[in-house]
Design a protein around this nucleic acid. Structure first.
Lengths: 408, 408
DNA sequence: TGGATAAATCTAACCTTTAGAAAAACGGTT
DNA sequence: AACCGTTTTTCTAAAGGTTAGATTTATCCA
């Protein structure tokens, strides 16, 4: 596939996204504020805003009379334009979250999922019931739902061996899902979701390049370059969890040996602990999220568990080395950590990881690199996949013309 | 650093580059041909071409009277517009190559360099003498030289520990180099050079994403995404040679342990051979390029050396696994191999590497992936760095306005 | 009622692109 | 020698985009 040509229409499309994004971040802003934030001229902002008002996405909120002079009319996103739902299908749970059109969270519902049940019918059922529960809880009419984003942990294993996120090789059950849900659907994978979340709510647009790392059952990286998500040829970009940390190392659930995930994924961390203290009670914990939560608790003063501390040190080394590889290859300006492992253990891990990355990265590649726990609010997978659904809606309405290469 | 805004001028700039590139590839083409190749309208092509003719870069070559109708005026790059020199500073040699403005090679000169002498004065001297020799041999007046591109293997070690390619942290001796040469100079690193070469003479523009891998003393990857070179925050992107293949593995010259380079760099391959057959005569060869050449010779039928064959198998496994990591993270459409190791051994390595990559890449990431020896003519580092110098010249003349983020 | 002032809008200029009409250049035919 | 058909190249008009700067609008205050 060759590179696509850019036309002046794309510029307008980007201007619209810029304005929307600025409004989303600011909550409320005048046209003049938007000029300052976006760097666009006041004329452009005016026309873009009137497009958005016409599309019902933006409303004039109120007039703030200053001391003197014409009062400011502040603008904000029109949350009542409709509802967006994001569904985070994880290995251990399925959670559906309802947002308004300003991407403020309204309600959410979670159903447990059997980690070992790959049956498509089962998964489709669970997705539908989580979705229905969330919509019901939010008290939203189905007709108000502008779009549903579903994040499927594609790429690896299961699901009949067929990835759900490859644009060409469709997951064979998408049609059934679409039929059952009967709303506009977008499917993508969690890495693209967290990258999108970072682009709208986090560090994505403040840096020319950034990577957000997802730490949970699985491990992966959302790569954002020049404000664009790196998807790669088959939407597999960022599957860093299945890059090598150690040749012929630990067995990974993907079949390969020595993957990053086998060391810093939740069960990898447990394996590390078991290596240090085989008889440690936490080494036998069967629920991954319980295990990670217990680790965090065991580190609290006044008496941090020494085996757990050692586990954290080793995990930080593994993670630091693996991140250094990412730095060597992509050399980003900033890295954020997200996912439930990061939320629970991030504070303990970040300083050691940072040291290790600087030590291990080639030359000065990590010189100005910032590494932080992500500031994206809430569950960044759900937020991100909902944002992708919103982008898709904007595109359907014609407010955005840039091709959005989402999967399905 | 935030993302920069695109204006309509950038579009014109890109159109000019597109036309130039099409002309470079075709050698000779009419305006109509260019319309077909670039996808631009005939009006745009006409204005762009007249800009380029005015700038002296393109000339109307001749009129080819067809059977009937207005005869075609074919256009081509004006080689006589001036000369460009590319200097490939490698660990073991320094080679300067003179090109005309159509990037056809005119002459080149090589001087040996001591692999272990890092002294800046020494290196500057060698660069200057290679440059002078090449210019002399080509019989070119200094005033005709539009620019000199110098590729320095920055990033790693040596050179007083300061990287030459970090835009901000200047190599302390650049000023001296500039003073001695007294011509417009651009400095960049070889990975960016081979990526540029691939963009102008190879597969770069035919694919939305591609990676070109440099195999020589050092090892690295030039990453091309959407027709743009990935540079990263500090121009270190692509230093994949110093990403991990094996945690705590072989000692690498960069100080880290287990880098890819320590396994598939020239001396890494030698180490692999020594591991298989410690007493093998080639294991004692002291010149890297001789060693690689001898390996290729030893594989020729009718009696391929079994120890060398085994070395190749193992090297292909290492290289395949390392490339699979790149595929997991970037997921490119195509990968090319370049550098003298690839030219000598590529034919033997590629099939096994390809198998290994498909086996080791996550999911279907490598499904449609092509892996080939690069088709870029000649030394792609010299060609690429010269092309960067030409781009810089175009920018100075005002024909290209897109910021070209070269180092110095 | 009439300033002073700040925000929002309008205007004109300039940039790009494309589609399609018009012009140019030539061989062959009358 | 004049004309015609054909093909390539150039020109023209329309549509979109952007910006800087002038103009209008809306309010408070004297």
């Amino acid at each position: 596939m060759a590179v696509t040509r850019r036309t002046s229409r794309d510029i307008r499309s980007e201007s619209r996204l810029d304005v929307l994004h600025a409004l989303l971040l600011a909550g409320e802003a005048s046209r003049g504020d938007l000029v300052g934030v976006t760097g666009l001229s006041n004329a452009t902002v005016a026309t873009v805003v009137s497009d958005l008002i016409e599309g019902g996405l933006v409303i004039e909120a109120r007039r703030t009379g200053g001391r003197v002079g014409r009062p400011t009319t502040s603008l904000r996103l029109n949350g009542n334009r409709g509802r967006i739902v994001g569904v985070d299908v994880a290995e251990t749970y399925i959670r559906a979250t309802v947002f308004d059109a300003a991407l403020d969270e309204l309600a959410s519902a979670e159903v447990a999922a059997d980690e070992h049940d790959d049956d498509a019918d089962y998964v489709v059922d669970r997705i539908v019931s989580a979705l229905d529960a969330a919509i019901g809880q939010a008290g939203v009419a189905r007709a108000d739902v502008l779009g549903v984003g579903i994040s499927l942990p594609g790429g690896m294993a299961g699901w009949g061996g067929v990835s759900a996120v490859v644009p060409d090789a469709t997951w064979p059950h998408v049609d059934r899902l679409r039929e059952r849900i009967d709303l506009p659907i977008v499917i993508d994978n969690p890495l693209k979701a967290i990258a999108t979340a970072e682009l709208w709510f986090g560090e994505g647009r403040r840096h020319a390049s950034m990577i957000t790392i997802n730490l949970g059952t699985g491990v992966g990286a959302g790569i954002v370059l020049e404000g664009t998500i790196l998807r790669g040829a088959t939407n597999f970009a960022g599957e860093w969890g299945h890059s090598l940390l150690a040749l012929d190392g630990r067995q990974c659930r993907c079949g390969r040996k020595g993957c990053v995930e086998a060391y810093v994924g939740a069960s990898g961390i447990q394996q590390t602990l078991a290596g240090i203290a085989p008889a440690h009670p936490l080494a036998a914990e069967t629920t991954q999220r319980e295990f990670i939560g217990a680790l965090a608790a065991a580190l609290e003063p006044p008496s941090p568990d020494p085996a757990v501390s050692e586990t954290m040190d080793l995990t930080a080394r593994y993670l630091g080395s693996a991140i250094a590889d990412l730095v060597a290859i992509v050399n980003p300006e900033m890295i954020t950590l997200t996912g439930w492992t990061a939320w629970a253990l991030g504070g303990h891990l970040v300083p050691a990881v940072r040291r290790r990355v600087i030590e291990e990265s080639p030359g000065d590649a990590a010189a100005g690199l910032a590494i932080e726990v992500s500031t994206v609010r809430g569950n960044s997978v759900a937020t991100g996949i909902a944002t992708i659904a919103l982008e898709r809606f904007l595109s359907d309405v014609g407010l955005v013309t840039t091709r959005l290469p989402t999967a399905l």
